[in-house]
Design a protein around this nucleic acid. Structure first.
Lengths: 364, 364
DNA sequence: CTAGAAATAGTAAGCGTTTACTATGGGGAA
DNA sequence: TTCCCCATAGTAAACGCTTACTATTTCTAG
């Protein structure tokens, strides 16, 4: 092997464990203060000096130590996001929005997943707090357990006190007086709209399947569902509501069971698109045609909705937009008073998108 | 408003910008060293003292400052991962594996996306280097531009020198002597297998669509494709190979164009499942039946493959596993010598999964 | 010419932890 | 009783950077 560290070999010029700002200073024959200033560019440094410094930086393959920088008072330039599961498209698209906006604002993105465990969610908020992220964004529906809410509220206060912010994305407020920012979508309205659409097509007995019980998202979607029923004077039938989980597997297995019973429904409202996909699968397996025999709708409009056959009629939620807005809001300097009056909350609309999975009920 | 900071109010007890270890020490009447030791538990602390300390921690809502900790020499407990796009299922599943394994090993996960820009990829590696992550994992095929390879190799050396590691996940080596770890899958083998399957069904003219040109993934898949052709003595026809991009949109539009020409193929190999989905869409639009008129296969076996109708025959890549192994390897203390002999590389297998999108070619 | 303002550099004090050393008190062995 | 060791706790020196001050030139205006 020949000498690997010729003076022109950028990054590997020195061994050790990475060059420090002092190494650069020495190489350039200036003080560390000058290097720091040349690098951040917020203070005049003579052109010649600056060039010498930059040359040394390249020669040494120097990159600043983000921790030292953060510790010395500069901001961390990092936002944290907490989601359920990276591979669930609902969260993945929101995460994409967050990642893109964060990077547009020169921030890095710390992503973690709860796998649906609310204790873990709380622990993750603390982890982000340790990291001193500029903001922490928690995504998706929340449990309505009061103990949990209190714990989360405590963390919101701690974050606010430390100059960071807790952003609630697609979940309800922690209550008045708790310093959070919120970006949500019209969950209830979308559910109302699509239920009403089903009714307008002539359906009267609609099955609702999916979504964890005691979960804010489920609650809102059901609320919209019921409101539509009520508005048309259709009786609510508890036998037609089956909460459980979000996810294709749940939709499939629950639908199989439900098909054994004689519930007499003509349409099914899947709590989200994945549940609807499972429902479709179960229906197909039984040779039931969609939409001729039974109509099906979903929620979220993630790509699988248009991948399915029949293409799924569903409610479009602007997921990526939601993520972007979350970081915009998070990073926006809230007016001096953290007053509740400032618009720390933002709601984006939803609308139904009509595809091929709904038709009028079969004459029976 | 009544007094909000009663002594029992956990986290919000003090204003300011977060309690420090010194605050805890004072509250507990001990030195900061003792607090540090009680917290990390790597040094004996009297039971009574420890309890007093933990009480103060809770009272103050104290969480350690990760930056100070990292600076003081402890590891950062963070791994970085660089992918193309969070919302692309191929990457999302790998990211899930990484995230899960990282969290199983008590690490946090810094996720960033390149959006296919290789300059940005290099910049992101530097960003992670600034963060002093325990490892940085770059995922997915790579460009074979020599300048780019050299730059990446420089960074690999810098990371290694700093005690971190560059992990190549699903991409080829940067060359001998460059200190990287690798976890890959049998890309070429999978392509060979599925092409051979197509041939065994009687297909002779197979169209290959998708994948960026000059990209390692494309190169391997095409290599397997060609090898299968050669093995059966089928002539390679350049007119049947159409590189371009990964993505549903590309598959759809290119297929539409190709359908205008009279290429006489009986099967299509989509460079990945998303491309195949686009191909299916274009075919459906033209009223061409799959697999009766034309057979289609994909690659990766992401969920959309089984969502499609017909269900897509494809090559299964254990994506989540890939991600997990990447962090296992990354975090494994490599033997003292960073010798090339140690097994810093790991390959997971691929296999074809047969569904409904292939049948023997139509008699014409 | 000279005083005072730029412009440019350097000094050194933190930022919040960890950890090598040092200090203290109490027990048990001899 | 005297020593030595163990269990605990404290002191203070990094870690690598930013930035308020201070110092030195070099102009510019009067």
């Amino acid at each position: 092997m020949t000498d690997k560290s010729s003076p022109t070999d950028p990054i590997h010029a020195r061994g050790g464990s990475g060059a420090t700002i002092a190494d650069v200073a020495q190489a350039a024959g200036v003080s560390v203060a000058t290097v720091s200033r040349a690098l951040s560019g917020n203070y005049p440094v003579a052109k010649a000096t600056r060039e010498r410094i930059f040359r040394s930086v390249t020669d040494l393959g120097y990159v600043a130590n983000a921790h030292a920088r953060a510790l010395a008072g500069a901001t961390t330039r990092t936002v944290g996001i907490i989601i359920n599961d990276v591979a669930d498209p609902f969260f993945a698209y929101i995460a994409r929005g967050v990642e893109r906006q964060a990077s547009a604002e020169g921030r890095l993105c710390l992503i973690t997943a709860t796998h649906g465990d609310k204790e873990r969610e709380l622990a993750l908020v603390d982890l982000m707090r340790e990291q001193r992220t500029d903001a922490v964004i928690v995504v998706g529906g929340a449990s309505d357990d009061p103990r949990y809410r209190k714990q989360m509220a405590d963390r919101a206060r701690a974050l606010a006190a430390a100059g960071s912010a807790l952003v609630l994305c697609g979940r309800p407020s922690l209550g008045p007086g708790v310093p959070t920012k919120m970006v949500t979508y019209d969950n209830e309205g979308g559910a109302f709209a699509i239920t009403d659409y089903l009714i307008s097509q002539g359906h009267r007995r609609i099955l609702y399947v999916g979504g964890p019980r005691d979960f804010s998202t489920t609650a809102s979607r059901l609320a919209g569902f019921y409101r539509a029923l009520d508005a048309r004077g259709i009786e609510r039938d508890p036998a037609l509501v089956h909460e459980g989980a979000f996810g294709r597997g749940f939709g499939y297995s629950r639908m199989r069971e439900l098909l054994e019973q004689d519930l007499g429904f003509t349409a099914v409202f899947g709590a989200n698109d994945l549940v609807a996909a499972g429902i479709l699968e179960a229906l197909e397996e039984r040779g039931i045609r969609v939409p001729e025999d039974i109509s099906v709708v979903g929620y979220d409009d993630v790509p699988v909705a248009s991948e399915l056959r029949p293409r799924l009629t569903t409610v479009r939620v602007p997921l990526e937009e939601l993520g972007r807005e979350a970081v915009r809001l998070a990073l926006a300097q809230s007016p001096h008073d953290a007053g509740a009056s400032s618009d720390n909350t933002l709601t984006v609309g939803t609308h139904i998108v009509i595809r091929d999975s709904v038709s009028p009920p079969k004459q029976s």
